[in-house]
Nucleic acid binder design. Structure first.
Lengths: 153, 153
DNA sequence: TATTGTTATACTCTATAACTATA
DNA sequence: TATAGTTATAGAGTATAACAATA
């Protein structure tokens, strides 16, 4: 015999299949928009904020690494990196270990901007997630990790 | 005295502030890409899939409702809705209750496509979240809800 | 006056295909 | 041959401002 609770959960799953992904998209849009607002003075697009925040730890990364870390393709990053390089925020150096590859790293000028981007993310998390428990955060990380599985193909 | 565990957690928080939002963006990109692959036969963009999946429940929605549900602006939806309307997937009818407003609804032709989009989301969730517990899913929902808070202005 | 949605405009994002240089 | 990244190209996403119609 199925309990009332189990039935309710099943009905929810049937009716709201796909709702998790829709909610994910909504949250992604909302956070991107809020970050743009917080960093309005820096004149950065959402993708630029994302790229800079990834580089904010000071570690140099190949274009391809940045692409997979941000969920885009190298071709997408070319013009974005051009723009940030033109503004003096980062440089591309040939990787001595593989001279087909460019290592992207922040300049002294770009470092504070990248850290501001990262700080805006931290701040937004702190502001919006104050009432969320550690267990819920752990669940979020588990789901996000599972959803980010390498695409089939 | 601070335990080793507490220190490790604090160090993680300091170093990885912003990591939740970066992970969110990565997951959003990954799921969007996977949905595009699953629906390759339908020739739909990510935003079109998102809009159709929202409409898949058969309920008509105003353009503004669709915009806020998908995290965009009405101006963004105009050309997208034009495209889907031209393909015969949806129609815009004047809202009799407020004649400034258009109600968007699926056509008989669009309904199966929208349901395919929604089914692709459900299928992707089922495939990638099989090993995730109900408690983790609940945590994910809580965090996503908190991150989607209405932007400040 | 305020609001809904479109139009006009201008950039950015995104991917595919072709190309260069290197492995 | 295969891979890293760029260039060229084309279409889609995004927002702001101006506008029409309605509230």
């Amino acid at each position: 015999m199925i309990s009332g609770k189990a039935r309710a959960e099943k009905a929810t799953a049937d009716t709201e299949g796909g709702a998790l992904i829709l909610a994910l998209q909504r949250a992604a849009h909302s956070t991107l928009h809020a970050l743009g607002t917080r960093l309005a003075g820096e004149d950065l697009t959402a993708s630029e904020i994302n790229a800079l925040a990834l580089l904010a730890d000071g570690q140099a990364r190949a274009v391809g690494e940045l692409a997979s870390a941000s969920g885009t393709k190298p071709t997408t990053l070319t013009s974005l990196l051009d723009r940030l390089a033109r503004r003096g925020y980062l440089v591309r150096d040939l990787d001595p270990a593989d001279r087909r590859s460019f290592l992207v790293s922040l300049t002294d000028q770009g470092r504070p901007v990248a850290q501001a981007a990262r700080a805006a993310m931290s701040g937004l998390e702190a502001e919006r997630l104050g009432a969320v428990s550690a267990a819920e955060l752990a669940g979020f990380r588990a789901v996000v990790r599972a959803l980010s599985e390498a695409a089939e193909s």
